[in-house]
Design a protein around this nucleic acid. Structure first.
Lengths: 197, 197
DNA sequence: CTTGAACGAAACGCCTCGTTTCGTTATGGT
DNA sequence: ACCATAACGAAACGAGGCGTTTCGTTCAAG
């Protein structure tokens, strides 16, 4: 082999090295998982990825940019339930979201993104754009309920989703994801009745 | 005068100096307002307050502790409306909350507290305890609605408030406090119908 | 009247920051 | 085929915040 023993990543010419990019993202995610946002520094990521700091700074303008990139590279679950009933759709939506955040890294990473967005304006803008897009997507099951006549015409599907998502955010940000099924059921009943109009 | 010109604060004996405490809290709040959480360091607060760092470390065990103290020293508005109607109570609640956060410093400081709670576990615990207490207080107007028969017995007033507060948090954390009255009205209508049961 | 704690100020060693410099690698335009 | 150009990891830079210690002082408590 040409590079025996400790094979180091080198430049592959005047172009971005995808291996380095992947190693950096992977290291960043691992650090976020293990030490949280507090340990998430360019320095730490570079060390763990065996990458040079200039390499990171070349491709990501800020800590927030790298953090957002990590978040966007998370694989996301389907969040548009379709059980045929608005009330059970709401339960399914919240249960899936809570589970997605609780199991795995997504919750910890998303908390970090939200925290970063309170400091970095670019992160705020990116987060806002992201959630608005997500709300619009998830609103689909409310629109379906409207089509079925299960929800009144005057309700805004996006606003309804925002209500659910806001509830979930609050639980996430205060470390209260302990998925109480009865509570979710009561909540779903409340909301679905409200949407019925 | 005994201390002409630049009158310096000195020890007043083997006891805490309230003037120093106040100066530190005031400086901390000013920094949060002007530079946000990014510029909020013990070093910066000490400089601005003309205080020694050991004085701060003696009375506040961490940055998070000082931050929470600043937040708790904010004067808070009344958040338990009583208009006689559930729907208008909801509108009043959200309008007051949005206004409280938008005008003045409370919103910026609260965003900082939430961000800090995603990093510091003590801050998470303090925030959780705070919001649960607040939910319980604000739930009063929903309880009144229940007593009037405007809300069903099976709804949880705290859960209803959590829904409203979660919505507000989401708007705050994504910098979307631009108080659209029509939107709030639609939301209030939705929710009050749901609570009616 | 002595002891000891709190005060502001300054300096400590340590760490991370974002940047610069280095030798190396290999692309891409001429 | 050649060579200017750019990306790579590593190391070192100065700047600045970290949390702590030391100092001379002020004054309450015993």
């Amino acid at each position: 082999m040409t590079n025996a023993g400790t094979s180091r990543r080198r430049s592959i010419g005047a172009q971005r090295n995808p291996e380095s990019q992947q190693a950096i993202l992977k290291a960043a995610e691992a650090i976020l998982m293990e030490d949280g946002l507090a340990g998430f520094s360019i320095e730490a990521v570079a060390r763990r990825a065996h990458a040079g700091k200039p390499t990171i700074y070349r491709w990501w303008p800020s800590r927030a940019a790298l953090l957002l990139d990590v978040y966007h590279h998370q694989k996301h679950v389907e969040r548009v339930p379709d059980t045929g009933s608005l009330e059970t759709d709401i339960i399914a939506f919240l249960t899936a979201l809570f589970g997605y955040w609780r199991d795995g890294n997504a919750g910890a990473i998303f908390r970090s993104v939200i925290a970063e967005a309170q400091t970095d304006v670019k992160a705020t803008d990116a987060l806002r754009a992201y959630v608005l897009d997500r709300f619009s997507q998830s609103a689909e099951f409310v629109r379906r309920a409207q089509a079925r006549g299960e929800a009144a015409d005057w309700v805004s599907p996006e606003l309804a989703i925002e209500l659910l998502a806001g509830f979930a955010w609050n639980r996430l940000l205060t470390s209260r994801l302990d998925d109480n099924p009865e509570e979710l059921q009561r909540l779903a009943r409340q909301i679905s009745l409200g949407l019925k109009g």
